[in-house]
Amino acid sequence: MTDLDIRTIIHHELRRIAPDIDVAAIHLDGDLREECDIDSMDFLNLIAALHQRLGVDVPERDYRKLITLNGAVDYLQQKLAEA
């Protein structure tokens, strides 16, 4: 799976959580919670949705690695490569 594939999945899941999000305006290294104006529960829903779509387990200690779009893509790419 490519970085673009993963980014597209993240964008799709973010739009499901917060339909008014302009995913094109998200700064790649900005905090997704602030960029998308989502709360901590929405962020947990995003992690759960990514787990469901990609089959990647994200332990709580790694949540901070998914704070930014670039971080999430890198983390998920690494986990998928390990599988």
Results as ranks from 00 to 15, higher is better:
residue 57 D to I: 11
residue 59 P to H: 12
residue 1 M to S: 11
residue 67 I to W: 13
residue 15 R to E: 08
residue 72 A to E: 00
residue 33 R to D: 01
residue 58 V to Q: 04
residue 6 I to Y: 09
residue 4 L to R: 11
residue 11 H to Q: 08
residue 37 D to K: 06
residue 48 A to G: 07
residue 54 L to E: 04
residue 53 R to L: 01
residue 56 V to W: 00
residue 8 T to G: 08
residue 28 L to R: 14
residue 38 I to G: 00
residue 81 A to I: 08
residue 36 C to I: 01
residue 82 E to F: 13
residue 30 G to I: 02
residue 10 I to K: 03
residue 42 D to E: 14
residue 17 I to H: 02
residue 53 R to Y: 06
residue 4 L to C: 10
residue 76 L to S: 00
residue 78 Q to N: 09
residue 20 D to Q: 10
residue 15 R to W: 03
residue 22 D to P: 04
residue 29 D to E: 14
residue 75 Y to V: 00
residue 72 A to Y: 02
residue 74 D to R: 11
residue 71 G to H: 05
residue 57 D to V: 11
residue 27 H to R: 13
residue 48 A to P: 03
residue 29 D to Q: 13
residue 35 E to G: 00
residue 73 V to I: 12
residue 16 R to Q: 15
residue 26 I to H: 03
residue 70 N to I: 01
residue 65 K to F: 06
residue 47 I to F: 04
residue 48 A to N: 09
residue 49 A to M: 04
residue 51 H to F: 09
residue 54 L to G: 05
residue 72 A to P: 04
residue 3 D to R: 15
residue 9 I to N: 08
residue 23 V to Y: 07
residue 12 H to T: 12
residue 49 A to Q: 01
residue 17 I to G: 02
residue 42 D to M: 08
residue 71 G to N: 05
residue 55 G to P: 12
residue 65 K to H: 12
residue 74 D to T: 10
residue 51 H to C: 08
residue 50 L to R: 01
residue 22 D to R: 05
residue 37 D to I: 05
residue 53 R to H: 09
residue 46 L to Y: 03
residue 56 V to I: 10
residue 46 L to A: 00
residue 58 V to H: 04
residue 8 T to N: 15
residue 5 D to N: 15
residue 60 E to P: 12
residue 7 R to H: 11
residue 50 L to K: 03
residue 46 L to M: 05
residue 43 F to G: 02
residue 24 A to W: 11
residue 30 G to M: 04
residue 37 D to A: 09
residue 43 F to I: 02
residue 3 D to P: 10
residue 79 K to Q: 15
residue 83 A to E: 14
residue 82 E to D: 12
residue 58 V to F: 04
residue 36 C to V: 00
residue 22 D to A: 11
residue 45 N to V: 08
residue 43 F to H: 09
residue 53 R to G: 00
residue 82 E to K: 10
residue 40 S to G: 06
residue 34 E to G: 10
residue 36 C to L: 02
residue 15 R to A: 10
residue 82 E to N: 09
residue 16 R to C: 14
residue 22 D to Y: 12
residue 73 V to M: 03
residue 49 A to F: 05
residue 12 H to F: 14
residue 63 Y to H: 13
residue 16 R to M: 15
residue 31 D to W: 06
residue 70 N to S: 08
residue 63 Y to W: 14
residue 47 I to Q: 07
